[in-house]
Amino acid sequence: MENEIEQAVLRVVRSMHENLSEQITIDDMARTAMFSKFHFSRVFQRVTGLSPGRFLSAVRLQEAKRLLASTTLTVTDISHRVGYSSVGTFSSRFTSSVGVSPSRYRQLESVTPQIFVEGRPVTSGTRSVTVRGAISSPLKDRPVFAGLFPDRILEGRPVSYTVLPEPGPYVLEDVPPGEWHLIAQSVAAGHEDAVNHAPGGDEALCIGRHGPITVRLDTETKLADVQLRPMRPLDPPVLLALRDLLFAGTARRTG
Rank of each mutant, 00 (worst) to 15 (best):
N3E: 13
I153Y: 01
S51M: 04
M34L: 10
G178F: 05
H17F: 15
E6A: 12
R66C: 11
Q7E: 15
H181C: 01
G119N: 03
E155T: 01
T219C: 00
E22C: 12
R104T: 01
Q45L: 02
P113I: 11
T48R: 02
L61Q: 13
S51P: 02
R46P: 00
N3D: 09
K65E: 04
R93Y: 10
K65H: 02
R127L: 07
L240I: 02
E203I: 07
V82D: 02
V195D: 09
R66G: 06
E2S: 09
R216E: 09
E18V: 14
G125E: 12
L172M: 08
A134Y: 05
R104S: 06
L139S: 12
Q114V: 15
E109W: 00
G147R: 06
D141Y: 11
R66P: 04
R93Q: 15
L242G: 02
T71G: 07
Y105N: 03
L108E: 10
P138H: 04
Q227M: 02
D28I: 13
F90T: 08
Y170S: 05
G125Q: 11
L172Y: 06
P212S: 14
R31H: 09
L10V: 10
D151H: 08
V47G: 00
G200K: 12
G49P: 07
E155P: 05
I26K: 01
Y105I: 04
R209P: 00
P138M: 10
L67F: 11
S79E: 06
L20I: 15
L56I: 09
T126W: 09
K222Q: 12
E203L: 08
V215W: 00
G133L: 13
D235P: 06
V75T: 13
E155F: 07
T72Y: 09
V171Y: 11
R243T: 15
M231W: 02
M231G: 00
I26R: 02
E109Q: 11
F38C: 05
G201A: 13
D225A: 05
T250P: 03
R253K: 14
I115D: 12
S110G: 00
M231V: 07
P143M: 13
I213F: 07
Y170I: 07
H210A: 15
L228I: 03
V215R: 01
F55Q: 01
Y84Q: 05
I153G: 00
R42H: 09
L139R: 10
D193A: 11
G83T: 05
E18A: 14
G201Q: 12
A251Y: 12
S136G: 15
P233C: 08
E173P: 01
N196S: 13
T89H: 13
S15M: 11
P230I: 05
S21M: 06
H197P: 06
R127C: 04
V163H: 14
S15C: 10
E118P: 02
A188I: 07
S101N: 07
I183T: 00
P230T: 05
S70Q: 11
H191A: 07
T221M: 13
S51D: 06
Q62A: 13
S186I: 06
F94G: 11
A204V: 10
G208T: 03
S91V: 12
W180C: 06
